[in-house]
């Protein structure tokens, strides 16, 4: 990381409070985004579960023995229609949750990119002000690499934020795959050419959002493939499985729940250590 070579003791004395305020804010944001993510992820999972359930009911409708109701005219059609409508509802809720999760990860990314504190105004002027965007090309906003509080420099805070955010980015991408899968099971009867694939935008503007968190490859004109932390990226053969059976759906739901890319202990460790350094509580 580049450092500002010249940083007079007096200016660092002034830089520090502004930098500290900013760091506290950004980390408080990160911590609250983490909570929002968790609650969005959990409601998305319950939408996905409902979607799976109504899809399975629909799938087995023909084989189902409706007992005394069998003689009611058009009962199966009506039930199917109702389930179909429910499916649509869960589908749109799942999509909405996913969209919000993308938004949250983007907010994390931007919080992670706003850790620096830049000098605003003219050097040596009596009034010094700071902002979180660079106005001066020689100012890299890290106070010359000095500790912002006691030990950690700005770049050390940035490293931790990056590590934290990266977990959520990877997990978002894995969940994207699951969303596509959940969509395709509810879409069995629809025309096959209508089926979603990895290269399709799930909502308009999704690819812009994904590029903000580096999940979109302009080269391949597609989102990066889902990857587990510390493993190779997947192969490009991401076709929706046709008619996944109940077991597969159960594995999908478990995968959603497991948050494999988010190492909870490490997340807590990072937040605790940062909170300690900043002398605040992040919960």
């Amino acid at each position: 990381m580049e450092k500002t070579p010249t940083c007079s003791p007096s200016s660092s004395r002034l830089w520090r409070p502004a930098a500290q305020r900013n760091l506290r804010n950004q980390w408080a944001n990160l911590s609250s985004y983490k909570h929002k993510w968790a609650s969005l992820s959990s409601s998305a999972r319950s939408h996905a579960t409902s979607l799976v359930n109504s899809s399975l009911s629909l799938r087995y409708m023909d084989a189902r023995d409706l007992g005394v109701l069998t003689d009611l005219p058009g009962i199966k059609n009506k039930a199917s229609l109702k389930l179909f409508k429910q499916q649509e509802l869960h589908r749109s809720k799942l999509l909405a949750s996913y969209k919000n999760m993308v938004a949250i990860v983007n907010q994390m990314v931007s919080a992670g990119a706003s850790m620096r504190c830049f000098l605003k105004g003219v050097d040596n002027s009596s009034i010094l002000q700071y902002s979180n965007s660079a106005l001066n090309s020689t100012d890299v906003g890290d106070g010359g690499g000095i500790p912002a509080f006691t030990f950690r420099s700005i770049s050390s805070f940035e490293e931790l934020a990056k590590e934290l955010i990266h977990m959520f980015i990877l997990e978002l991408n894995l969940k994207r795959l699951l969303v596509i899968e959940f969509f395709s099971i509810s879409n069995e009867d629809a025309r096959k050419d209508n089926e979603l694939s990895w290269q399709d935008e799930l909502y308009s503007g999704e690819f812009d959002d994904l590029s903000k968190c580096n999940l979109y490859s302009t080269e391949a004109c597609a989102p990066l493939l889902p990857t587990i932390k510390g493993r190779k990226p997947g192969k490009l053969k991401l076709q929706a499985e046709h008619q996944p059976d109940e077991d597969v759906l159960q594995v999908y739901l478990t995968t959603w729940l497991a948050d494999v890319n988010i190492d909870k202990c490490r997340v807590d460790e990072i937040l605790t250590s940062v909170a300690e350094e900043m002398n605040v509580t992040l919960v």
């Binding site: 894995l174 795959l177 699951l178 596509i180 899968e181 493939l225 889902p226 990857t227 587990i228 932390k229 510390g230 493993r231 190779k232 990226p233 997947g234 192969k235 490009l236 053969k237 991401l238 076709q239 929706a240 499985e241 996944p244 059976d245 077991d247 597969v248 159960q250 594995v251 999908y252 478990t254 995968t255 497991a258 494999v260």
Partner: peptide, 21 residues
Amino acid sequence: LIQNSKKYGALKSVDGIGDAI
């Protein structure tokens, strides 16, 4: 179930998913 790699559907393309889960 989660130890049965045949049941991973589209997730099969994600390296290491079974172990991770």
